[in-house]
Design a protein around this nucleic acid. Structure first.
Lengths: 241, 241
DNA sequence: CGGTGTGAAGCCTTTCACAGCA
DNA sequence: TGCTGTGAAAGGCTTCACACCG
């Protein structure tokens, strides 16, 4: 078992927004991006089911995660063959494998850049800590905001970023600044050694190869909904990748 | 020109999360979902460029939107052939066409459900109003929150939802409740006649066919970044669809 | 039996490359 | 000449369907 599929992609070759090429380095069995994007859904579903059952079928997991059973099986087959035919998957084992794969056994300290409405909300958002992401630094450029407290963190000036990143081992930067400042902040993050960025600012941010970037654009989401309203079509599964 | 491509999909058949089938109704030239998801990017880019130039090439637009020029041309060819060979696209004209296609010439009043940290931040978020989405109602179940004001809106009890939706013509519901309440709130929205929902709660929400649903899960985004950190791969373009 | 694991098929999306037009 | 518009090719993802095994 676990033969590494033909008829299933081998090398998604993910390209950073900066879009440079680079030689293939990493391990053999590469998990497709679409699958990676669904692992958090499975993880969430598995935690929900954990105190109700010790095993789970692809069918059940699919329902809880809001996807199809075939997808679940294909996706999970990538982590290895952890299911038992005729029975299903062992929930506990699967939780372990998925969280290992997602890197949730590590600690990834988060810094939030830009402490306006959104930044403050993110800093207080329980969903982050609930899923193991600790916010360890808040940064802003506005002198009036610097020094104020949000929860038990003080807002620091952006000049302190390199020290903060180093001292607190910041692994992920969350950009919650206005669009105009986003690129500059991203550059500072990268310069400070941060290699993963989540951008909430409604603008394109470019990062060098080797830095991961994802974006969330709230107004864009509404505009997409608006399109489908206007056209009497439904949005799809919203799988988001 | 404008021959409606072979070698380019005809019927994306978008399925709601509820996943029911339904007969094809709508218009002829169907815009692929991937294209729809990029229209907001082009729209943003076009507004940026509008006061610098009257025309724009696919190359320039691609750079500003963070995509490839081939994509821009393919995507725009769907709205009709609005470019001029050897010159590019007329910015003003394109803005008009894209915003018409996105339904931005209409008004889509927004209700926010759940006025916690996130809900409050969304209510104050300038990015919504800046792009023409007016927040017209705030709803919460907590008696302590109901009656308080956020900006110039009072928080209303969830029982008032049907009246609010009717009176204020709410077209889009934004769910910012805890996971436990999300499905119930979605059901109420649907019952009240809302046919577009943006879900921020970290849980699967099911809606009947005919209702559009998109989701934004903040912790999921961090987990995806975590995966790529752990695996020394980069996230891709983060195109998000 | 029941449910996983997976080739194969089909579909959608991206990319290529160039004909054709202003 | 320069850039759009678009067939065609390539790539990736989803779905199907069933062999296989506990």
């Amino acid at each position: 078992m676990h033969k590494r599929g033909i008829g299933w992609p081998r090398r998604p070759a993910p390209a950073g927004e900066a879009g440079g090429e680079e030689p293939d380095i990493t391990e053999d069995r590469l998990i497709p991006e679409a699958t990676v994007a669904r692992l958090p859904l499975y993880y969430r579903a598995l935690l929900e089911i954990a105190d109700q059952s010790t095993t789970v079928s692809s069918e059940q997991l699919a329902e809880l995660a809001g996807v199809t059973a075939a997808k679940v099986r294909k996706d999970l087959s990538f982590l290895g063959s952890y299911g038992t035919r005729g029975v299903g998957y062992d929930v506990e084992h699967l939780v372990r494998e998925v969280s290992r794969e997602l890197g949730l056994t590590h600690d990834w300290p988060v810094a939030i850049l830009g402490v306006g409405n959104l930044g403050r909300a993110l800093a207080n958002y329980r969903g982050f800590s609930a899923r193991g992401f600790r916010v360890v630094a808040l940064v802003d450029t506005d002198p009036a905001t610097v020094g104020t407290r949000v929860g038990d963190l003080a807002v620091e000036p952006v000049e302190a970023l390199p020290a903060l990143v180093a001292d607190r081992r910041v692994a992920i930067g969350v950009i919650a600044t206005p669009a105009e400042s986003a690129q500059a902040v991203a550059d500072r993050l990268v310069a400070a050694g941060v290699r993963a960025i989540l951008n909430f600012a409604p603008t394109v941010v470019v990062v060098p190869p080797g830095v991961s970037l994802r974006k969330v654009d709230l107004a864009t989401e509404l505009q997409i909904l608006s399109f489908y309203q206007q056209h009497d079509r439904r949005t799809r599964d919203a799988a988001r990748v």
